[in-house]
Amino acid sequence: MTGVIFDIKRYSIHDGPGIRTTIFLKGCPLSCWWCHNPESQSAFSEVIYRPDRCIGCGACEAVCPVGAIALTQRGYVADPDRCTGCGECARVCPAEAREMIGRVVNVEDILKEIEKDVLFFDESGGGVTFSGGEPLSQPGFLGEILKACRERDIHTVVDTCGFAPREAFEKIEPFVRLFLFDLKIMDPEIHRNFTSVSNELILSNLQWLSDQGAKVIIRIPVIPGVNDNEENMEATGKFLAGLPSRPEVNLLPYHASAREKYRRFGIPYRMADISPSSGERMKELSDRLAQFGLAVSTGG
């Protein structure tokens, strides 16, 4: 079985307990305005080009099987209509000016990669985290790896936006030790406005996970002017306090760190005017949620 991933990060220390390896799966059903990994949204592999690294050797032009690459004022540019995303150009580029975002891998390869750091997991109480993109957008592939990890006694975390068919959650839930579950906005319409989908499915999945007794940590990206208002905090607090497991909450302050990525990929960045919340503000929000009897932490 194969899947599409766009990155593997070892010594990942902010995505669950201990030292972890995070696998980033490609493809996401949401398109949040503040997305930190815009290159992860599409489900397919793509090649990006960095003219600042290009030495102009022309190896890419020579190797392209469909003749999509030509020398222009901006370097060796690929015609998007002809490019098939095969990645041959990235393979031969000596200067790493062409880079493949996303690659097709099989379960065995991923397992081999994960198992490389098993002593670090053992020593630190860490394991593997699946993030994205949205890992549940490839439920079959994800399920198989998770199952294999559990067979090898590797601790598993899934970092999800919650927007996936219930069957997908049912399939993976037995093999997941911890869910990092994103909860963005409680109002369905505002949610749709900023993420392109309504949150009903997300909330129902969260309710279901909680009912199953799954271990869940809620992660709320605090986006100033979008979800840091009293109404949303109150609705969030009430909803979470009503869940049987009363999950722990982690507030993540928004950072403008993805701006440069948007520029690189030529995607318009809709958050340009927003500045991050102050530490004080984060503390206020954290205190507000704590009033609902929830354990809240900030940062990450």
Binding site: Y11, I13, G18, I19, L119, F120, D122, E123, S124, G126
Partner: peptide
């Protein structure tokens, strides 16, 4: 985590 990195 740094301590665990060293130990490993």
């Amino acid at each position: 985590k740094l301590a665990k990195l060293v130990r490993t």
